[in-house]
Simulated scan of single mutants.
Amino acid sequence: MSETEDRFNNFNEDIINNLYDTAMAIRNENHDNPNNKTIFSSVNKRLAVTDAAMHIAYILTELKDKVLVVNLDSRSTAAVEEYIHSKAKPNLFTTLRNSMFLSEAINHSAFEKLDIIHVEEMDEDELMAKFSDYNVLSKLSPLKSYYDHIFLIGPPFEECENYGAFLELADSAVTVISAKKNDRQELNQYLQKINLFNVKSFGILRKAE
């Protein structure tokens, strides 16, 4: 059994069923709307977001779909790499500094149909400036021609003042929360922000933690 499969089996049955249902909802949406890009995010559950995004990506690759994960949270790089073993170096903006094509930043993983791009570590102001300077959305959209699914991993909402810069890259969203304790006010603020940017919600995944 692979390390990823073993980690997948550590989820309880209800969570596995929710992950599978969400994967199928995303798959159906992308069949009808091939340009759809999905952001995985939370108010403050960084590792749970990585778990959800990578497990759903794994489910879809098992169905022979091709998935690109664009990790926009530099603090999640190590967690993502634990899943896919790509040995990828963060190179999103390093690539765009020298090329018009974000495709040149793509790294292959240990899974045939799962690829990755990581963003470099920088503070929020610098990151927002680079999003603007390089028009990331225009570079990201053409990659849908090569993948069945594009997943974005966003940083925690509570850590970013300008979360709209992440949401404007996405067409749909999966929100991850703790099954035990959540700040309802902050969660509502985030869900309102999703609606403000006309991002379709695939609902909320509750992670037991």
Results as ranks from 00 to 15, higher is better:
Arg7Ile: 12
Phe8Gly: 06
Phe8His: 11
Phe8Pro: 14
Phe8Tyr: 15
Phe8Leu: 13
Asn9Trp: 13
Asn10Gln: 15
Phe11Lys: 14
Phe11Pro: 09
Asn12Glu: 03
Asn12Tyr: 11
Ile15Asp: 03
Ile16Trp: 04
Asn18Val: 00
Leu19Gln: 06
Tyr20Thr: 10
Asp21Ala: 13
Asp21Gly: 07
Thr22Asp: 05
Ala23Met: 10
Met24Ile: 09
Met24His: 01
Ile26Met: 14
Ile26Arg: 08
Arg27Lys: 13
Arg27Asn: 09
Asn28His: 12
Glu29Trp: 07
Glu29Gln: 15
Glu29Met: 14
Asn30Leu: 04
Asn30His: 06
His31Trp: 05
Asn33Arg: 09
Asn33Gln: 05
Asn33Ser: 12
Pro34Asp: 08
Asn35Pro: 00
Asn36Cys: 15
Asn36Met: 07
Asn36Leu: 01
Lys37Phe: 10
Lys37Met: 14
Thr38Glu: 02
Thr38Ile: 13
Ser41Gln: 10
Ser41Asp: 04
Ser41Glu: 02
Ser42Lys: 03
Ser42Ile: 02
Ser42Gln: 04
Val43Asn: 09
Val43Thr: 13
Val43Arg: 04
Lys45Asp: 15
Leu47Tyr: 09
Leu47Arg: 10
Leu47Asn: 11
Ala48Gln: 12
Val49Cys: 04
Val49Ile: 04
Val49Ser: 00
Val49Ala: 06
Val49Tyr: 01
Val49Thr: 14
Thr50Asn: 11
Asp51His: 15
Ala53Met: 08
Ala53Tyr: 03
Met54Asp: 01
Met54His: 08
Ile56Pro: 10
Ile56Tyr: 06
Ile56Lys: 03
Ile56His: 02
Ala57Asp: 05
Ala57Trp: 05
Tyr58Ile: 03
Ile59Ser: 07
Ile59Asp: 06
Leu63Ala: 13
Leu63Gln: 10
